[in-house]
Design a protein around this nucleic acid. Structure first.
Length: 292
DNA sequence: GGTAGACCTGGACGC
DNA sequence: GCGTCCAGGTCTACC
């Protein structure tokens, strides 16, 4: 079955897909040639389905197998969230018009950050990006999915992202030895256990009206989430008050303003201070000189 | 509030 | 094939 979901304008499908490296992490997939984005999802009914999503005139078009009425409603809600179809970035665009390095922000409809259907998945993936190289992040994520994810019946080589319950039912030792997440094992298992038991309601944070500073405090309470990871998750949640400062950010700022000389996190903060509540977006969508 | 050192993995490199 | 070094954020202890 096919269905269309409209997006608040302006909207640019490729800008969302290319907003960060998430698209390279299973169970996402993207075919550059056809422009089809795929995601294997486990619905709350227990069925594992694939969404094949492409750009439409007003937003996105999704294709999947026949779903029940409640499954369809769930799929629509998840896809709306993943692509932030309802998000409004007009205030950021207004501020960005004055800055040549952000000139393309509005024309390319930047601001939306590709996200997972659940915040649990995004928190786990963010933990997997910390203190490691991108290749290792991809490997750990794939190991996690292959070990704990439910298989997609039409192609059992592909699996949905594991539920908190599936990970919680295992233990930190298995995460360390089979998923090869190293010291992150206890943080991931604790996160899964607290989420599965209801002690931690991550999904409520998606709709939270808390000020960003308070929301950040909530994220920092999670074991394994520090300043970088919290800022990354805030951007995913549409909050732009903090910059995810990692070694890459230091490199970008170093080459942009300091001729490649070493810089500190404070230097990065200073460069974007004037952007206030938009500093995260300004950093994220800056037209950087330096490229990998 | 700031800082040093430990935590792990896997890739790169030298032998 | 083996050993060593290094990159990458968070956490804890300490000042």
């Amino acid at each position: 079955m096919k269905f269309n979901l409209p997006a608040r304008q302006p909207f640019n499908f490729r800008s969302v897909i290319q907003s960060h490296g998430w698209v390279q992490l299973a169970p996402y997939g993207y075919d550059e040639a056809t422009g089809v984005f795929a995601y294997v999802d486990r619905l709350s009914s227990g069925r594992v389905v694939e969404y094949r999503i492409s750009e439409s005139t007003e937003g996105v078009q999704a294709q999947t197998e026949a779903l029940t009425k409640s499954e369809l409603a769930e799929a629509k809600e998840k896809i709306r969230w993943m692509f932030a179809l309802d998000a409004d970035f007009s205030a950021f665009y207004k501020a960005a018009r004055k800055e040549p390095k952000l000139r393309r922000a509005e024309t390319l409809a930047r601001g939306r950050v590709l996200r997972s259907p659940t915040l649990f998945e995004d928190v786990v993936k963010t933990i997997l990006t910390t203190n490691t190289l991108w290749g290792a992040t991809k490997r750990m994520n794939l190991n996690l999915i292959n070990l704990f994810g439910a298989p997609f019946p039409a192609d059992e080589t592909r699996r949905a992202f594991p539920t908190p319950q599936a990970i919680a039912a295992s233990n930190a030792e298995t995460l360390r030895e089979k998923v090869r997440v190293g010291y992150r094992a206890s943080a991931i298992h604790e996160l899964a256990a607290k989420t599965a038991s209801g002690q931690l309601d991550l999904e409520a944070l998606k709709r939270s009206s808390l000020p960003t500073l308070e929301l950040r405090k909530e994220l920092l309470k999670i074991n394994g989430i520090g300043p970088y990871a919290a800022a990354n998750l805030l951007l995913i949640l549409g909050r732009s008050d903090f910059i995810p400062i990692d070694s890459w950010a230091l490199k970008l700022v170093s080459h942009e303003w300091h001729d490649g000389e070493p810089v500190t996190a404070k230097d990065v903060e200073r460069r974007f201070e004037k952007w206030g509540e938009f500093k995260g977006f300004a950093y994220w969508f800056w037209d950087w000189k330096y490229e990998a």
